[in-house]
Every structure is written in structure tokens, then in C-alpha cells.
Nucleic acid binder design. Structure first.
Lengths: 241, 241
DNA sequence: CGGATGGTTGATAGTCATCAAGATGGGTGG
DNA sequence: CCACCCATCTTGATGACTATCAACCATCCG
């Protein structure tokens, strides 16, 4: 198999699994899009993809692994902005100013697809669904940020952590992975930082939920034992009544 | 002057002041865009523009006034998601799902331009700068939400309110209004709700900042007396060293 | 004038941060 | 292969910030 063939195949996977463009691109259109997506580049744990202030040229689709985005304030304190799992797109916050407002680091060995943004701009004028996809992708991020806003401003520590776990669970489920048994790719410190809590609080809540038979926690391994109860903790409500 | 002429003129203002498309549309292109923007519709105080779950068809550019977006949780509690001032665009969070995740109410008499989204989609394939503008607009919102995330998860009540006031100040300044003397269009309750604080805390912080000669507060009228000091309160830092 | 809404002020209590110390565990080098 | 070490995590004790409860004041409007 020639190198360019492998490339095309890997990039078809990008379109289908990585970029997740959901519908109705023709195969020809997919080829055009794929041709612009650069080969996935593998990165070790703790590698920096880009840093605050770096020039923005490309979006990145996560193929495998997990990453965090963060900023540093003047006193050097880290602020975790979000986490990225396979299938998610990195860099949407950088389009506006042409430089990245956040830094990105891998939390474990990861692979990314680089997608030059000027190509997206050019192609999205020709391929209607790609433009629609981009608008929806950006809009979805805004909507999710609003939910996060609610989480951070109104919820207790227990609700925050419950919601966080359910969110991760849902994202794993979307990727055909187990929604009840998974591994936290990030440290307790990162979780605490992201949720605006102290590490100690995260630790305490997790052990409390474990004592209550809602979770089983072993280091980074988490098993959701009682999904309904976890929903109650997170939302004060339960999907089945 | 014919009705259609008036329409065009009002809509040129939309492009320049309302939509704030910053650069390089030709006059012909502006005419095309403007032709699709519906006449500003005036709304009284406390009017509902749309509600959670309503079908999404248009974005709205604020021409005058002020609005808030909010959701209601199951117990009927309101959660204020954000505020909109003249020149800002409402509805970006609705593109993804095709229905509005939030409700919008006017905080005072306001006027909006309705911009059908299918027209934006169609035109942004023809007019490069419009597509770029839309990408940047959406991206900017994401970036600002990240800053809000930081505000809510890490800052104290005083820092939150200081930052909130400076944010408003900046937005008024962008609109050629006084950045030091302005009127809060929203109630203390809305501010508290938005920032994840109790009304009492907002009230206390405002009076404290007034005692410290940082602000002058009279009901909804606010005057920033000591901008540097307010920056210190908000960010622990001061623009001039 | 009186009720309603919104805002301010005071007293108390609860949640969570902070400080401190111990436990666990993964990685490295001897 | 083991021992050590550093980072991460957990657990406990204390205290601070801010929510809550309660009362009072101002303003608006019928």
C-alpha cells in the first residue's frame, strides 16, 4: 500500500470518526476534505501542542488520547479551561484573534489530526455541509459553555463532581466506550482546578460517593455503580422519574 | 423617502453599527447583506423575544436597549446566562440544535434587527468576509465564555463584581459611550444570579467599593471613580504597573 | 395612601478552602 | 529486583467567605 493511500484511508477515518462530520458529504467531497487534513501526529504524555499566544493556523481533531487546555495567570497559577477526548476539535477559541488564548497539553499518549484553517474556510464555501458543520460545531461549544457557566456558578461541590462524571460518561458513550466503567485521564488536581474546587474537596467527594455505593473509585479507574443516584447527586433529578 | 429606501438606510446602520462587520465588504455586498436583514422591531421593557425550545430561524442584532438571556431549571429557578448590549448578536447558541436553549427578555425598551440564518448561510458562501466574520464572531463568544469560566470558578465575590463592572465599562466604551459613568440595565438580582452570588453579597460589595471611593453608586447609576483601584480589585493588577 | 418590588444592612450558619500530615504509587537508579 | 523518592492522593482540624434568614428602607405605581 502506498504512502498516499494509507494517508487517504487514515483521513477518511478522520472525517468519519475524528471530525465526525455527521451527514451527507459525498465521497468526492470527503476526498477533498481529507486531502487537506494532515497525517495524525502521535504525541507522548505531557507534550505541549501549542501555547498561549502561538499563532493560530490549524484546528486539531483528537484521534486518540486525552488533552487539557489551560492558561497561566500572572502569578503562574494554572487555570484548566477544558478537556479534549477523541473526536473533539481543538482550537475553536483561537479563530477570532488569530492566536491561541490557551495552551494545550496531552494528558496521555495522544494522536491529533491537523486541519489547516484556511483550507476549512476555502472548502466551506464550496461544500455547503462543511460550512453548516462548522457553524454547528462552534455553536455547540457555546451552548456547552453556558451549561458549564451554570455548573460553576450555582452548584455545590458534590453536584459539580457528579455532573462532571456524567459528562465524561456521556462523552465516552458517544465514542462507543463504556459509560459506566472508564479511566479518568486527568489528575485530581486538574479536575479540582477545572471545577473551581480544592483538590482535597474532590478527593473527599469521591470517597463519600464511594461509601454511598454510587461509585467505585480506584485511582483513576471509575465505575458508576448507581447511575440514577449519581443523577440525583448531580441534578437533583433522575431520568426515570 | 420611500419605505424601501428607509429600510436600506436603517440596514446600512445595521451592518456598520449593529452587526459591526468590521472590514472590507464592498458597498454592493453590504446591500446584499442588508437586503436580508429585517427592519428593527421595537420592544418594551420586559418583553420576551423568544423562549427556551422555540425554533431557531434568525439571529438578532441589538440596535438599542439591553437584554438578558436565561434558562429556568426544573424548580422554576431562573439562571441568567448573559446580557446583551447594542451591537451584540443574540442566538449564536441555537445554531447547533435548531432551537433556542435560552430565553431572551428585554431589560429596557430595546430594538432588534432580525437576521434570518438561512440567508447568512447562503450569503456567507458568496461573501468571503461574511463567513470569516461569522467564524470570528462565534469563536469570540467561545473565548469570552472561557474567561467567564475563570471568573466564576476562581474569583471571590469582590473580584467577580469588579470584573463585571469593568467588562460593562469596556462594552460601553466600544459603543462610544462613557466607560466611567453608566447605568446598569439589569437588577441586582440579575447580577447576583449571573455571577453566582447572593443579592445581599452584590449589595454589600457595591457599598463597600463605594465607601472605599472606588465607585459612586446611586441605584442603577454607577460611576467608576478610581479605575486603577477597580482593576486591582478585579484582577489583583493594574494596567499602569 | 398602601402594597409590591427591589435594595440595603445585620446576625448567624454552612460549605468549602486552607493548613498539616500521612498514605499510596509509579518511576528511576543502584 | 528492590529500594527509594517524588508526585499524587487521602484524611483530619480549623477558619474564612459568603449564603441564608430576618428586618428595615426606598421607590414606584395603582
Amino acid at each position: 500500500m502506498s504512502d498516499s493511500q494509507k494517508f487517504t484511508i487514515s483521513c477518511h477515518q478522520c472525517s468519519l470518526n475524528g471530525l465526525c462530520i455527521p451527514t451527507s458529504l459525498t465521497f468526492d467531497e470527503m476526498d477533498v476534505v481529507d486531502a487537506e487534513i494532515k497525517r495524525a501526529k502521535p504525541l507522548q504524555k505531557n507534550a505541549t501542542v501549542f501555547e498561549t499566544g502561538d499563532k493560530f493556523t490549524s484546528l486539531y481533531a483528537v484521534r486518540s488520547g486525552a488533552l487539557k487546555s489551560y492558561t497561566l495567570d500572572l502569578s503562574g497559577e494554572e487555570h484548566v479551561v477544558g478537556f479534549f477526548l477523541p473526536g473533539e476539535i481543538i482550537g475553536l477559541d483561537a479563530i477570532d484573534e488569530g492566536q491561541h488564548p490557551t495552551s494545550i497539553k496531552t494528558l496521555e499518549t495522544s494522536a491529533l489530526c491537523e486541519i489547516p484553517f484556511d483550507q476549512i474556510e476555502a472548502l466551506s464555501k464550496k461544500i455547503h455541509n462543511l460550512q453548516t458543520y462548522m457553524y454547528k460545531l462552534l455553536s455547540k461549544e457555546i451552548r456547552e459553555d453556558q451549561q458549564l457557566h451554570f455548573l460553576l456558578s450555582k452548584k455545590t461541590a458534590e453536584e459539580k463532581i457528579g455532573t462532571f462524571l456524567l459528562n465524561l460518561s456521556g462523552r465516552y458513550k458517544d465514542r462507543q466506550l463504556s459509560p459506566t466503567l472508564f479511566r479518568l485521564p486527568m489528575s485530581r488536581t486538574d479536575i479540582a482546578n477545572f471545577l473551581g474546587l480544592a483538590v482535597e474537596t474532590v478527593s473527599r467527594v469521591l470517597t463519600r460517593l464511594q461509601r454511598q455505593q454510587v461509585l467505585k473509585v480506584d485511582g483513576k479507574e471509575v465505575e458508576i455503580l448507581d447511575h440514577n443516584q449519581l443523577c440525583l447527586v448531580a441534578f437533583n433529578e433522575c431520568p426515570n422519574g
